[in-house]
Amino acid sequence: MNVFRLAGDVSHLVAIIILLVKIWRSKSCAGISGKSQVLFALVFTTRYLDLFTVFISAYNTIMKVVFLAMSYATVYLIYMRFRNMYDSENDTFRVEFLLVPVIGLSFLENYAFTPLEILWTFSIFLEAVAIMPQLFMITKTGEAESITTHYLFFLGLYRALYIANWVWRYHTEEFFDQIAVVSGVVQTIFYCDFFYLYVTRVLRGKAKMILP
């Protein structure tokens, strides 16, 4: 464990909490892409299948349970509890355009052709594109509430911090997880445009981020 990875995990946890609290307190999921949240729940489910078979550390196990529980709770709030507030006409990204290539690639590019490894690889590739429906929804509506942009900021920051973690681990313990690194860089690149808008608009105190 290093400070970059810990900061990344905390940033990830903060992002998930921000979204969950926002939906719960506002009793609404307007402007939130339910599809992205379902994809994130799928990412955690396929990545943490080793939850009961492999014990890394108490921290690792606890965080996996927390991430799984909160992502399913978010999906539950969007599609069950506050489904009448779900903005389905703006959440129209075709997720099959994400799932098909990701499934194909995880069969082609993986560390071992075993169910657990292929599902882990699938979760890594899927996480890189899971935010697409949300970013697409923002470009479609042309705006995002500032709390949603804070959610996206911490979500993007988490994988950027993981890149620092991978650089650190490469130099200190000769660790290099090529699939995670390549996918993580692609994922972070997808946030760059948002990061620019976040810094130039939201941090200037705008109530909400209006896209140009």
Binding site: R5, D9, H12, R47, D50, V54, I56, N60, M63, K64, F67, Y111, A112, W120, Y162, N165, Y170, E174, F175, F176, D177, Q178, I179, A180
Partner: peptide, 10 residues
């Protein structure tokens, strides 16, 4: 450099 197994990152 090695990829990690088991995967120890979240």
């Amino acid at each position: 450099p090695s990829q990690n197994s088991p995967h120890d990152e979240l």
